[in-house]
Design a protein around this nucleic acid. Sequence first.
DNA 1: TCAGGTCAACTGGTCTAACCACTATACCTG
DNA 2: CAGGTATAGTGGTTAGACCAGTTGACCTGA
Lengths: 236, 236
Amino acid sequence: MATNLWEPIRPPGSLAARIAARVEDMLTQEQLKPGDQLPPERELAAMLGVSRPSLREAIRSLAARGRLVVRHGQGVFVEEPALTKRLTSSMVSDEHSVDELYAMREVLEVPAAGWAAKNIDEAGIERLKQAYDLLTEAGARNADWDELQRLDASFHEAVVRVAGNRFLLRTLGVLNEIMVAGMETTLRHPGRLAQSAREHAAILNAIQDGDSRAARAAARAHIRSAHAAALRYVES
Amino acid sequence: MATNLWEPIRPPGSLAARIAARVEDMLTQEQLKPGDQLPPERELAAMLGVSRPSLREAIRSLAARGRLVVRHGQGVFVEEPALTKRLTSSMVSDEHSVDELYAMREVLEVPAAGWAAKNIDEAGIERLKQAYDLLTEAGARNADWDELQRLDASFHEAVVRVAGNRFLLRTLGVLNEIMVAGMETTLRHPGRLAQSAREHAAILNAIQDGDSRAARAAARAHIRSAHAAALRYVES
DNA sequence: TCAGGTCAACTGGTCTAACCACTATACCTG
DNA sequence: CAGGTATAGTGGTTAGACCAGTTGACCTGA
């Protein structure tokens, strides 16, 4: 964790409230991710230029709202959002058929692509292009499957992020986890990688153009061909 | 306020957590009523047999959850419940706006209704009719809002269950929890209950007929009118 | 070699006692 | 009687010390 994140707290307002607000910002901006450990209270207080009791008040208030969890003797950690936790625990347990999984993905990702096209701005384009470039670059240099899969997932995540619906983001995050945990990637099929790249490009272009209808169509096509590949994988 | 309410805190556990729990108990038991002022921090700390910083941590955590409000130079007060509810709902609508929530519901429930219509069989019809009858019967006898809300949710759950996608079922279950926890039901609006009943009937009929297209349309209409009602609630 | 216990270092938990800052009010002063 | 001012009461903040739970390195003895 970069230390300069924790710049001293500036004058006006209540210390604890401002510290809590700062940490909360870092959470939403994802400079702090679930599972991360905060610096020790003494250090953090020094970095922020406040006393330990004041810092502790801030931590308490964040813990009370479920953003942080404090473990005596260990440290202070960023708590996983309750929504994600519940979704994960309730979904991971049973098996779910491939058909159900892809049906669900289609339901979620098609609107996601459509919304992304409507919401697109400079920052969004930047984010999407970056995810896309990383993925194509990895494909070009024959990166290993794990990395390809990870980058593929992060492209889809970027789309959902640009779509701007946090329910959607979390739900899809969980689905992705399940896909990764429960089944091998479908990317290994001969030709699948290249086709997937073309489909990603189509999605990216449609979103960049702000063409919601085309984005939905591209997303639908992508998921259906991935579904077909997954079925072929299951059969083999 | 009776002084003997504030007996010293006993040994096990974290001080701040136990103080907060005690105060919360007093709130639910209505030994502390909205608008009441707590004793000054110094006094209260002495009564509880804890130090002022520890007590302050407890107060912070309760304030973070909207149970108390702290006014510099004046004191600590018990928060109005109405306001508390507003706060939690604004927290929910801050973290996940009402628009996002209903957009997500539409994305999920429209396909659910469509799939239900395609999958429908005797057992499914039975299940749907039962959920529907319970809801309309409760509406007819003017059941309390909690029960109506519960039965409403269970009708929607029945639809998703008939749709036969377990991912969908679980995801919607979590969304429902958030809606129930985070904001008042929208059923209380004048006329909303009757309109909701008509919309449910339309969904039920379409699914029974196996008319996927009509089921989707009915589900979409239902969620949009619920969304509109929710927005009216937020504004008021 | 390895199982077991011990200890040290690191973490949060709590306390004391003092001073700062905001708010309301009683009380002067003109 | 209007205005400002002093004061008392409230939360806000600090410093440094010590207590308590957790972990892992390390020593000891079989």
